[in-house]
């Protein structure tokens, strides 16, 4: 049995459903308490893995929806310590795997080893690091190994095969398959590039692959899960949360429809 929290979760979901639904929300939006409640709501409406975004001043791969939300979170006074508090509360209140998504400078600034230790102590499963490529990740790989945390690297349509192999080998939990060349945000169709990228990754790894960027409907989740192990939804959930927790629950239910076995 794998030592990876996420790999075990992906495997157990596969027993009953088409694949894993990963839901993103930023911590601290619209305020800390509501963001915690919102994350717990997701876990009650079909989201298997939470991806909690740590607001950062310079989010280069995020589109306008997530930028606007994380800007509000920072204006509301988000601090790194709130991330550990949120992970602790959410882990206590649900059985979802809780992953954090963070740009790397806050981790460096906090101290890579200390960050890993504190995240594990709070009950976190690991990190998605969008601006960290495997060749710069030595310190994080050692720290996450020591703390027993998962780590998710990105694979892109433009990555040559040797980089896909490096991303998959460095990742533990799943590899984040960037569906299309672009920043986060809802799109009407998820690029066929995702399907062919998953195919290229299958040739170099047996571990789980989750597709993100642009997914916003249950139908898209269902389509992605015909070839990938997980579907990651972000901006659509952030928009729904902007309308309130009831709207968030409805949207999550609709996305979770896409994880049913046909």
């Amino acid at each position: 049995m794998s030592t990876s929290v996420l790999e075990r979760r992906f495997a157990s979901v596969k027993a009953t459903r088409a694949g894993t639904l990963v839901g993103y929300l930023p911590i601290g939006y619209p305020d800390l308490a509501t963001s915690i409640e919102a994350a717990i709501t997701l876990t009650q409406h079909g989201v298997d893995v939470l991806e909690l975004g740590l607001p950062y001043s310079d989010p280069v791969i995020d589109g306008p929806t997530i930028q606007a939300a994380t800007t509000i979170a920072l204006e509301q006074g988000f601090r790194l310590k709130h991330a550990f508090e949120a992970v602790r509360e959410i882990s206590r209140a649900s059985d979802a795997a809780v992953l954090c998504m963070t740009y790397y400078n806050p981790v460096l600034s906090y101290g890579v080893e200390r960050f890993a230790t504190d995240l594990a102590a709070a009950g976190g499963a690991g990190l998605i690091t969008p601006d960290l490529v495997p060749e710069e990740a030595g310190e994080w790989i050692a720290a996450s190994d020591a703390a027993g945390l998962d780590r998710v690297f990105l694979a892109a349509p433009t990555s040559p095969d040797e980089r896909l192999r490096a991303a998959a080998e460095a990742s533990r939990g799943f590899t984040y398959v960037v569906s299309t060349m672009g920043i986060t945000g809802a799109r009407s169709d998820v690029d066929s590039a995702a399907r062919s990228l998953v195919g290229r990754l299958r040739a170099v790894t047996d571990r789980p692959l989750a597709v993100g960027i642009g997914i916003s409907t249950g139908a898209q989740v269902a389509e992605v899960l015909t070839y990938a192990d997980g579907a990651i939804v972000g901006s659509r959930l952030v928009t729904a949360l902007g309308e309130g927790l009831a709207s968030l629950a409805d949207v999550a239910d609709g996305l979770a429809e896409g994880t049913r076995r046909p």
Partner: peptide, 12 residues
């Protein structure tokens, strides 16, 4: 120095 960027930019 180095390259601390999202993977989609590495090829470029």
């Amino acid at each position: 120095g180095g390259r601390w960027v999202p993977e989609p930019l590495i090829a470029a």
